[in-house]
Design a protein around this nucleic acid. Structure first.
Length: 287
DNA sequence: TGCCAGGCAGACA
DNA sequence: TGTCTGCATGGC
């Protein structure tokens, strides 16, 4: 176990921010037992981590300090100072001020590129709970079991090889719907070397988006999500139905991302998290 | 039961 | 180039 103090960090907000689908609140913690606060778990590759907020900015993680510094420090983007993003907000922008105050603990996780590609292809025209259950079903069917102290803790995200070795009809059985052909073609293209997923991370952000848009089943919204959450290009600004509503309701149909150039994606996450909350409905008296 | 969801590709003008 | 339409399925 490793205890550390972290600012601008909230496990529940990260879990609910729509950027990650396998970062969840534990029904029953396997490692961090007997805490009064909620324990969260996440999975990267075959690594399993539990985390809990102990008090104020103090957190316990179910790994050693060495493992935390080697793997999880970067995953939680802890080298980045999020307070400077929050301080830069235009003080005349009351909606954004409220959004940032509400989502004060959001960070942009540095997630697996392949997992983000497939996850956001699945995300199109699905609710977040539906995305979660679809991905979980795929992991159980095509991923590898991960054990903690001899207990089955979770399943890894399926590799391109695993998807490619199955029939497209087998994918369909897990709720991917019409996206089956997108996932299967992507998996085969990766396995056969036509798409270099890791290489995308080496490209400049604009070029990476250009390459993402060439992939069958990926349009501008999914490309921006993969860029932001998978390639950690935090200037990417995905526009979905929620962000469109914000732009229409609060910015007269136009939001200028240039004002937050270099970290517009962080601003987008504050907006997205807030607009979907009960607090937003209270603040703006929406039904 | 019906509506909606972190959209996209393909057809058509 | 811009607009319209069909699409699979689960959660609420």
């Amino acid at each position: 176990m490793y205890r550390i103090k972290i600012k601008d960090f909230d496990l529940a907000q990260i879990e609910e921010s729509g950027q990650c689908f396998r970062f969840i609140k534990c029904d029953k913690a396997l490692i961090l037992k007997d805490y009064k606060n909620d324990v969260y778990r996440t999975i990267v590759g075959d690594r399993y981590l539990e985390a809990v907020n102990v008090e104020n900015d103090v957190y316990d993680f179910s790994c050693s300090e060495a493992e935390f510094n080697k793997y999880w420090f970067d995953y939680f983007d802890l080298a980045t100072d999020y307070s400077k993003f929050k301080e830069s907000i235009n003080q005349d922008d009351l909606f954004l001020k409220r959004a940032v105050e509400y989502g004060y603990g959001i960070r942009i996780l540095v997630q697996d590129k392949w997992e983000m590609l497939v996850s956001f292809i699945i995300s199109q025209r699905k609710s977040i709970p539906a995305i979660r259950s679809c991905i979980e079903s795929l992991c159980q069917a095509f991923g590898q079991p991960i054990y903690v102290d001899g207990q089955l803790a979770a399943y890894s995200f399926p590799s391109p090889e695993s998807f490619a070795s199955h029939d497209i009809e087998e994918l369909k059985a897990h709720g991917v719907g019409y996206r089956d052909k997108y996932i299967m073609k992507l998996a085969r293209d990766v396995v056969e070397g036509r798409i270099d997923v890791e290489g995308l991370g080496q490209l400049p952000a604009e070029k990476a988006t250009e390459e993402l848009l060439k992939i069958f089943g990926i349009g501008i919204k999914v490309a921006n999500c993969v860029s932001l959450f998978g390639l950690h290009n935090i200037d990417a600004f995905p526009i979905d139905v929620w962000i469109n509503r914000i732009i229409f309701d609060h910015y007269n149909g136009h939001f200028d991302t240039e004002e937050y150039k270099g970290y517009a994606g962080v601003i987008q996450q504050y907006m997205f998290y807030y607009v979907r909350s009960e607090q937003y409905r209270i603040d703006y008296n929406k039904a």
